Amino acid sequence: MDTQRIFNPRIFSGVLAFAMLGGLCSSCATMEADRARDTEQLLAAAGFKVKPADTPEKLAHVKSLTQHKLVPHEKDGTVYYVYADATTCRCVYWGPEEAYQRYQRLATQQRIAEDQRMAAEMNEDAAMNWELWGPGYWWAY
């Protein structure tokens, strides 16, 4: 039997590249879904109302809106902020200016808390006394 027919390096490298690309794409999709979920939790905490796209017509309308961004829309002289998500929750969040201001404050507080957490981790890493553990990487395994 011909070993070239069993294992073709070109085909193998192509399949491997395709698999790696698929893994990267699914990783990006997961990160986007996590980000959407975090945003939607902040919107709910800020007082935004959620309306599910529970019919095909509503889902089609949600898909036609700007996705994963707060967009101002005017209705009867009042500005409402709308956040459409056709993929994660299949819904629309909407709220008035007051809810938008609360959302902005909560998002800022969350960013500050995350920055503080990262700074604390960096300080903890900087405080590590590597010389105490001797040379080499043997202790890390």
Rank of each mutant, 00 (worst) to 15 (best):
R37A: 15
S27A: 13
T78H: 13
Y103V: 00
V62S: 07
W133S: 09
R10I: 06
L43N: 08
E32W: 13
Q4I: 07
K49D: 08
W138D: 08
T88N: 13
Q109S: 09
M122K: 12
K58D: 01
V82Q: 05
W130C: 04
F18M: 06
Q4H: 15
R5V: 05
A60Y: 08
L70G: 02
Y81L: 05
D34Q: 08
A120I: 00
Y103S: 00
F48P: 02
H61E: 06
L43T: 02
M122S: 10
C28Q: 14
P56Q: 01
D115W: 08
D76V: 01
Q41D: 15
A127N: 06
F12V: 07
D54R: 04
T55M: 03
P96K: 07
R111I: 00
D38Y: 13
Q4W: 14
Y93Q: 07
L42D: 11
S27H: 14
K63S: 09
E74P: 07
G95C: 06
N8D: 15
A33T: 04
A60C: 04
R90T: 02
N8S: 05
V79F: 14
S64D: 05
M31C: 08
M20I: 11
E57N: 01
E32C: 10
G134T: 02
Q101L: 06
D2A: 15
R5T: 02
E98M: 01
S26E: 10
W130E: 12
K69T: 05
G136P: 03
T78K: 09
A86W: 12
G14H: 10
D54A: 05
G23P: 09
E124H: 11
E98H: 00
L24Y: 09
K75E: 11
T87W: 13
C89L: 14
A29W: 14
T66A: 05
V62I: 06
Q110I: 01
L42G: 03
F7A: 15
W130R: 10
V15N: 15
K51P: 04
L43H: 07
K58F: 03
C91M: 08
D34K: 09
M31P: 05
V62D: 07
L24R: 05
E74V: 03
A113W: 12
A126T: 09
A120G: 01
Y93E: 11
A60G: 08
P135G: 03
P52K: 13
W94L: 09
Y80E: 01
F48R: 02
I112D: 06
T66Y: 07
T3F: 14
D125T: 11
F48Q: 00
L59P: 01
A119H: 06
E114P: 02
R10P: 00
L132P: 09
R111P: 06
D76Y: 10
H61W: 15
K58W: 00
A19T: 07
T3L: 14
H73K: 07
V71T: 00
A99G: 14
Q116K: 02
H68Q: 10
N129T: 09
R90W: 14
L132W: 13
D115A: 04
A120N: 07
P52R: 11
E97W: 13
R111A: 11
K69W: 11
G77Q: 02
Y103Q: 01
E97R: 11
C28V: 13
H68S: 10
Q116W: 00
